[in-house]
Design a protein around this nucleic acid. Structure first.
Lengths: 245, 245
DNA sequence: GATCTTGAAAATACAGCGTATCTGTATAAT
DNA sequence: ATTATACAGATACGCTGTATTTTCAAGATC
């Protein structure tokens, strides 16, 4: 910062005294893969807001503008990040078992990657999943259903898939929103509980929220995992009911 | 812009020649409500990315820093925007009818506000809903269920509510992601269809996506509304199945 | 081998962002 | 009438995505 002050002047010293610029080192080799991996690394470590073209490029040892040889806009980088995660899910292997097992496995795999990459919840909204890995994933999901009894009609399989996916995405966002609020505040879980408790108590004390109050008092909350599983089972029951009609 | 050029010089003319600045006009009255409404107006008209403190303040005729008297960070403004939408939903009146009707009404109301305020899908991820209006909404939803047969246990009502909500949020994101991609490209629906069609065809031509191909060929896609409704019915069936056990 | 050409990387520049800090003034308190 | 306070506005900083300009390494040509 302050050691650049001298060079702010157009010509700080005589030419002879200034060092030549060191020869440009061979530029580090780049690829979409390397770029996307660097971006994911950043997002995992410091959140999606830490992903800037400057930082990604910096991590790779290049200038930010070089990335524009591989992507047209930052949006496209985010698209590539999402597709890379689909690749992760594919790599977890085939979906076997009955249709319920297949759908359950899919759901839990999605939950897994979202936990590994918390930034996904933000990107899943407002972004179509038409990348090659997303398509492979979708094909595999459909394939796991379309052979099964009751799913002869591919439309039924698609319907089931979309419904489960919608639930999974929504449920994960619910989980994430809580986690996010806590983390963003920079507090530990207990500190946050303690900080928001008075507000909740004051609201409940008004008597205008008897049902919420009952929940706070009576219900002992299951873990996120269990809650996720219960909701999922409801969906599967619904699909099963639909089939016997 | 360019009419300020002269005043870029430190002292354009002698003091005597310059007119006095007009007395400061009384600052326009501000409130969280006015601020939030301005922000929502902007978001509705030009998307969430158009919501900057500078623009919101500009719309209200004040400097950006004045907003910090009402909010601590921009994040808080977004929180207030979300809670304002919950107020909209509350204003639509009570939820009556059986539990299925109540849940269906809730779902469709949510779908309605998301259509009116497309930016909501982005904000729903990563933000807890603990504002006063969110709580009123939640209380009303629980109340609509907790009296019904089969929902004597409030935990069951909560479970049902959360599952439906998860589905609704996920399904709406699915809808939104498509719409968003099209709009972001600045094309009309048909142009976009035409622009992405070759890619899809090339992928399908590889033969690696037989199930997706079947869908493209065989299935005639229902409207978003119908698809939403079908998925919703699956959830409701699942909840019903759970109750008779 | 010296010169010229060319493609690509880096540097710079710009407009916009959230927000910290500084400055001036309209009003409240004395 | 004077001083104190609070608050609106101006300014500033470091960051962003990206357009434009500059610089240089390597290949082509003579």
């Amino acid at each position: 910062m302050s050691d650049r002050e001298e060079s702010d002047l157009p010509n700080p010293v005589l030419v002879w005294e200034r060092p030549e610029p060191e020869r440009r080192p061979a530029p580090v080799p780049l690829s979409r893969d390397r770029i996307v991996n660097a971006a994911i690394e950043l997002a995992d470590a410091e959140g999606l807001s830490a992903v800037s073209l400057r930082k990604v490029a910096g991590l790779l040892g290049s200038g930010p503008m070089r990335l524009y040889g591989y992507i047209d806009t930052k949006e496209e980088l985010l698209d590539l990040m999402v597709d890379a995660v689909y690749a992760e899910m594919i790599a977890e292997g085939p979906l076997d078992g009955g249709w319920q097992d297949a759908l359950r496995t899919m759901a839990h795999r999605t939950r897994g990657v979202v936990h590994r990459h918390a930034w996904l919840t933000v990107l899943l909204s407002g972004r179509p999943h038409q990348g090659p890995n997303a398509m492979i994933h979708r094909e595999a999901s459909l394939a796991a259903l379309s052979g099964q009894p009751g799913f002869a009609d591919i439309a039924v399989a698609l319907q089931a898939l979309k419904t489960v996916n919608a639930y999974v995405v929504g449920a994960l966002q619910d989980e994430a929103s809580e986690r996010h609020a806590i983390q963003a505040s920079g507090m530990t879980d207990e500190e946050w509980q303690l900080a928001t408790y008075p507000y909740l108590q004051r609201m409940l004390a008004t008597g205008r929220f008897p049902n919420i109050a009952r929940i706070v008092e009576e219900v002992d909350h299951p873990s996120h995992a269990e809650e996720f599983e219960r909701g999922l089972q409801i969906i599967l029951d619904g699909i099963a009911a639909r089939m016997n009609r």
